[in-house]
């Protein structure tokens, strides 16, 4: 990655395969693929991923590692992830600060956990196991959550900072999730950002939420809202040169619309550079 011009990219989605297959030039510097969409297939999805990888740097972003699982991380899952990593040679490998499975049952969701010492120890143990097995650093993303545990002993940012410090893993800072949580749980998003150890941030996610009954949901279904762009500006004041991905997962628009979002992010990066 060019350290002077951080890469701005988008999530790779099957909706855009036909367009990407044409090999046309894009305004995108890099892509991020959802790991699970390619771990169990030898078919067209994998072929497309490898084709796009020939032209662009690629990150692998998982939703099923279940790093906070009390059961530990599934060895079957890890083996498949390692095989995919060997095929794709990604620039970053990430998943989420969450759990999603237990006892062989899968929720297919990013579930929150108690912010306490027991969870902290469990996550650290699991991260170390994963990083040792994969032989590389992973990054974990802060999630949006719609409830919390009564057994919290620390703040979310304290837990994240401590996991990163103890294990050496990176933080994938999802600014939309910070914004969603701030609005739903009633805190200042910028306070959270100032609390996290921004030197651990290896990547940023931008996305647009939806609203229902006065609450905000992390649906990745709309353009990045002004509040998230503002958070991105504020974060860029604290730390520069962090690669960015714009995510869009529902009501996915044309690739050109995503490119417009990429250009907006690039403008912010360039403005920060001029400001220096």
């Amino acid at each position: 990655m060019n350290s002077k011009n951080p890469m701005v990219g988008v999530g790779l989605r099957s909706t855009h395969y036909p367009e990407l297959e044409t090999g046309r030039e894009t305004k995108v510097d890099w892509f991020e693929a959802i790991s699970e969409n390619y771990m169990n297939t030898e078919g067209r999805p994998l072929k497309m991923l490898l084709q796009v990888r020939q032209d662009y740097p690629m990150a692998l972003h998982g939703v099923g590692l279940s790093i906070a699982s009390h059961d530990g991380v599934s060895p079957i899952y890890l083996n498949k992830l390692k095989t995919l990593i060997e095929r794709v040679d990604p620039v970053l490998v990430s998943d989420h600060f969450c759990w999603s499975s237990r006892g062989g049952h899968y929720s297919h969701d990013l579930l929150p956990f108690p912010f306490n010492l027991e969870t902290l120890n469990t996550i650290c143990q699991n991260v170390e196991e994963v990083q040792n097995f994969l032989g590389r650093q992973i990054c974990l993303e802060n999630i949006s959550y719609y409830l919390k545990s009564q057994n919290d002993e620390m703040s979310e940012s304290q837990l994240i900072n401590e996991v990163c410090r103890r294990t050496g893993c990176g933080l994938l800072l999802d600014l939309n999730n910070v914004d969603v949580n701030a609005k739903n749980h009633g805190f200042q998003a910028i306070d959270f950002i100032k609390e996290i150890d921004f030197n651990r941030v290896k990547q940023i996610h931008l996305a647009g939420p939806s609203q229902e009954d006065g609450f905000i949901f992390d649906t990745h279904s709309t353009p990045v809202p002004d509040s998230v762009w503002e958070l991105y500006r504020q974060f860029s004041d604290l730390k520069k040169d962090v690669p960015v991905i714009v995510e869009w997962d529902e009501n996915i628009p044309s690739f050109e619309v995503l490119e417009d979002e990429v250009e907006k992010a690039r403008q912010i990066v360039m403005a920060m550079e001029l400001h220096l």
Binding site: A68, S69, H70, W99, R102, G103, L111, F113, P114, N116, L117, E118, T119, T122, S149, N151, E153, M154
Partner: peptide, 13 residues
């Protein structure tokens, strides 16, 4: 930071 043993497992179950 009182260690609440098994609170995570209970939460997840």
């Amino acid at each position: 930071a009182t260690l609440k043993n098994e609170s995570l497992e209970k939460w997840q179950v």
